[in-house]
Every structure is written in structure tokens, then in C-alpha cells.
Design a protein around this nucleic acid. Sequence first.
RNA 1: GGCCCCGUCGUCUAGCCCGGUCCAGGACGCUAGGUUUUCAUCCUAGUAACACGAGUUCAAAUCUCGUCGGGGUCACCA
Length: 453
Amino acid sequence: MPKKSLQNEVVTRFPPSPTGNLHIGAARTALFNWLFAKHHDGRVVLRFEDTDVARSDKKYAENIKEGLEWLGIDYDGPYWQSERTDIYKGYIEKLLESGAVYVSDESKSEGDRDEVIRFKNPNKIITFEDMIRGEISVDTTDLGDFVIAKSVDEPLYHLAVVVDDHEMGITNVIRGDEHIANTPRQLLLLEAMEVTPPTYAHIPLILGDDGKKLSKRHGATGLDVYRDMGVLPEGMINYLSLLGWHPSDDQEIFTPKELIAAFTIDRVQKSPATFSKEKLRWVNRQHILEMTEEEFYDEVKGQIPADITKLPQYHLDRVRASLPIFRERIELLSDIVEMAEAGEMEFLFEAPDYGAGDIAWKDDTPEETASYLQKVADLLDAVPADDFATELVKDAVWDYASEIGRGNVLWPTRFALSGQKQSPGPFMIATAIGKEETVSRLQTAISKLKDES
RNA sequence: GGCCCCGUCGUCUAGCCCGGUCCAGGACGCUAGGUUUUCAUCCUAGUAACACGAGUUCAAAUCUCGUCGGGGUCACCA
């Protein structure tokens, strides 16, 4: 049974129908309900609207729960409408008694059953105050005597929603814009039940890049797709919160806690927003930057592909030492995989193979270059192996490089370490691979240069 | 089509309620320059919008009306 509400406690709800995986739009709706509830020290109820047995499936319910848990959205429940038919039945019978609804003979129409239960529409103007849009007024006459149940044991959406919201003590209904047209019907039912309606807030839709309501055909709309892509839950929450909501200042990067503190419904947008993967990536990067070394390390090591872990110098210590290199170049955790696929990672775990011709900077001769590298190797000898920090490595070489010409010295140094024309800087690589390997790679380059001349 | 909702840079948006401080601010993206050689990062600068028309007013992104545009919804689905 639903938890009894405390006096004045804010209770919101997230009521998906388990007919598909949790998608971005629904996740954002859940998020707003959660932020609003938490901001007011309240809670959110998860309720599966599975009255349509044919279309509902447990596996979707699982996916939805997993998605919420991944995001860190905690909830009461879940409740299943399919397990609450007795409750609905009680209400339907009462409504039948009062004459607010009636059994309608459908035998002459094309429906799939001869009798359904219809609401006796009083045909009036319904006006309600939406927390986001203000006053909305609709003439319910065009709604007709809508169907509220197939039978006393088979309630339909509007009846079930209204009963549940009341039974569960929902104080605020925060849902997508597409439900704005449903509100008058539900208000009519509430009135017939002599129940005080909750407060409504209709949030704008999320659009695909074609300006249409986000749906399957827009490609990656499943929340799990983004999780698998290596978006952090904090990044996802942060980005989603900015779609249709804006704080009172220009802060853009928020922890979940900060969002709860800052979130107010009056700063929710009226107009729909378009989902931008680009900005999601940027927001996510900001959160990657905020991770502790330990957190980042745990995520990174899980991303490294098998063919990298097979490399001769692959070792977790080496991974840990390479963290700054990864941190600087990724927006999504899965960018680690892309780095590997692009061949931007092997040199961290094996000595590079390359031709001597590319080592020297511009027109420098092999002899000159070899002497520069020898000097660098000598200078690095003074740096302790157990404290081969990037800054120390740099300090050891910097004055010499500046004196000779930074490009002349640093290009071949970096190339000797990475074997690539484009790569992270030499000092970072040196720290990642350690003193011994650094010097060894410099010596290899020197030999190659000598063979050349 | 009926009903409902919405309309500021390419995108997310601030400002709109309480008209002047907005020849419109921030961020993403993009472009250019810079920082410790390359790539990346970072920094700086630039780019670009009040849908249109009328009205009210000394003054309108902000108020009013209209037009146009976009979206949602019209099930014995949710």
C-alpha cells in the first residue's frame, strides 16, 4: 500500500507505461519530478501504468527502473496498476451509483465489445492553473462522453490515473506537454469523485533535430544508449536539467545536490527544446574533470579494449600513470575506446616502431638530433625514477630546450617516446611510461639516427 | 480541420510578469589568435537572434491585437 502522506508533504509521481525502454524525454520528466520533490523535501512515486496488458512487458519495466537507479533518482514503489483493479472497481461502482458514469450500449457501433463505461459529460468550461503556463481554459463539450473503463474490472487510463493520484496522495502532477489535453477530462472525473485535484505543471517536450517530438526514429533516444556511451549519470542529469530549465544565474555545471537546491518550477521553460549531443558531451566532460583520480581510474580501466591490454608493457600502474593523458582528451568514457581504435594509445604500452626519417625537427640533421636526444637523456638522469613527475621532467629539460630551440629538442623527444607526429606532450608521456622506459626509447631513437648517418 | 500550447543567436537559454540600465547577456558549436614543439587541453577575441505587421507609449524583446510559423491532442493506448 502506498505510504501515507505526511501533512503538507510534496509527493510527485513518475508513471511510465512499460511499453518501451526509458527514453530521454521520459527520463527528463522523471528528473523534474524528482528535483521538485527533493527541493521540497518530498518524494516521488514510481507507478507502472500497465492497464494495457497486451502492450506492457516486464522487461521494459526493468529497463526503466535500471535507468532511474543509474541516474540516482530514488522513488517510492514501484506500484503496478494491474495489481490495483479492486481499488479502481470500488471507485467505478461509486461513480456508477452516483450516476456520474454509465454503462453504455455499444452493440450497434464498431467497437470490440458491446458494453463500456462512459463518463456523463456535463459539457462545461474547465479552467485550471498550470504552474508553468498559467491559466488554461477548455470547453469540454468536444470531449463527449468519453470511455473510462471497458468494465468495472478493466479501468482505462484516465480513471486509473485519477484514482491513483488521489490514493497515493500526489500533490503535484508534473508531466509532459502532451498531457495538457488530458487534464480537463481528469479534472471532470475528479470533480465527480468529489476529490481535490493536484496541482498541475506541464513541461515542454524534447524535440529531435527535425523539430518533432523525440521518438524512436530519432535514433539514440534510449537512456541506456547514453549510459553505454560512457556518459556519467551526473553529466546526464546535469544536461537534462538544462533542457527546459534554467537557474537564476548563469551557472551551468551542477552536482545533483546543487540542482535540487536550485530547482524551482517557475524557471521551467514554456517552449520545447532540442536535444544536443554536442552540449551533452561538453557537460559530461566537465563532470569527468570533477572526478577524483580513483573514480576516474576505475572507469578508465574498464574501457580499455582487449587488444591494448595484450600489449607487452600493459600494466595497471601504467594505466594509472597515464590518467592525465586520458583526462585531457575525452568527453565520454567511451572516447577511450576511440583513442585505442585511432592508434593513439599503443605507445603507452609498447615501444613505438617508426622510421628514423621523422625523428628530426624540420631540417635538423640526424647528428644534431641525436646529440639533442642524448643531452635530454643525460638531463633526465638527474630526475629520481620514483618521482618522475611531469613538472620535474619538464624542469629538467626546459632550459636546455629553450636554449637550443624548443622545436629542435622537444619534437624529437616527443617523437622518440610516441612514434607519432601527433601525440600528447613529451613530459606527460615520460611520466606515464616512467624513467627507465623513457630513457630506453630515447636511446632507441639515437641508435636509429646513427644508423641513418 | 477543431481545440490547446509555443515563437530571443545554428542549439540550450538570460532578459519579458514590474516598458527605459538591451544598438539584447551567458553557454555549446564554429572561426581566428595566443600559451610549453605536434595533437589535445586551456585562455582571449570574433561570429550570430528579439518570426512579421499594426497599435498603446516620450520610450517595446518586454503591454495589446492580428498574421505567419512550429508543436501537441482529438482511441474501448497511455
